[in-house]
Design a protein around this nucleic acid. Structure first.
Lengths: 156, 156
DNA sequence: TATTGTTATACTCTATAACTATA
DNA sequence: TATAGTTATAGAGTATAACAATA
């Protein structure tokens, strides 16, 4: 295999294999790390964090359910169910839209905002702890590589 | 905050923020890419692929259910249910262990092996397509960075 | 008629607790 | 009694289809 094309791409297969292997190891390590950090005691699951996130940066009135579902990328009935639970626990409010009797406005409560921000801060702290293990030059290289891989993902 | 420790780490906060941002973008791109590649038409979900994987490289007799569950990192009843479905579809066999009446041996069928290898090849092809978008030097840098991040994950 | 949200239903993945059969 | 596996049960997350209320 790899009949040594000598011009400008010396070892494509071996390099690809190495990269694929490194990628796999990385994904597995990331999964384990996440599992370690979310042992079940967390107030919010990551799906719930995803659902609440758009509510942080929206108008004070909140968002319609369909709009929220669309932003998060889930089906409307799924959002209904999740909002049910989060409303019960006092993290969001669900109010009839005064201008459109069909619609509903979903908004974060103070407690919901607090819990969400706390959770976000925890995640950030974990990432920082990890990135602090890198040297400055490794950090620069990592930022560059990750950005490059993100665009490659989008195009592939 | 950050009272400008001037000695050897010039812009730690800005750099960390950049890295965290790049990491987020990467994770999101990876999620979207995976969603694109697994639109529901796939024969196996990724959990099922994870479950079947250890059966590829085991003794011909197959694995016990508990052993399989342990390798994959799920609870035994979860494995039982998943094996139920995969057995129905002809991807694995479940045979009483002749030497231990309590135990069961789970093994891939020819069809299961084929489907699993095909799925694995698809995933590999997708990754290769992505990695082919990188230049050789970017590939080398990426392999190095991903390996480094994996060890950082394990230690953080 | 079109849109918003909800209910009904179903499937996958996950877990714990209780059970059966065998060692 | 200890171990292997299963059943019972529960809950989160996901979807589609059918529905009610409103525009």
């Amino acid at each position: 295999m790899a009949q040594s094309a000598p011009t400008h791409d010396p070892t494509p297969d071996a390099e690809l294999d190495e990269l694929v292997g490194a990628f796999d190891a990385f994904v597995k390590a990331a999964k384990r790390s996440r599992a370690r950090a979310e042992p079940g005691g967390a107030a919010l699951t990551s799906s719930q964090v995803d659902l609440l996130h758009p509510l942080l940066d929206c108008e004070p009135g909140g968002l319609g359910l369909r709009e929220l579902a669309r932003l998060v990328g889930i089906a409307a009935p799924t959002a209904t169910r999740m909002v049910d639970g989060l409303e019960c626990r006092g993290f969001v409010t669900r109010a009839r839209d005064p201008e459109d009797g069909r619609a509903v406005r979903i908004a974060l409560t103070a407690e919901g905002t607090e819990v969400l921000l706390e959770r976000r801060a925890q995640m950030l702290a974990r990432r920082r702890a990890m990135f602090d293990l890198l040297t400055p030059s490794e950090r620069r290289a990592a930022a560059k590589v990750l950005a490059r891989l993100a665009t490659a993902f989008e195009r592939s």
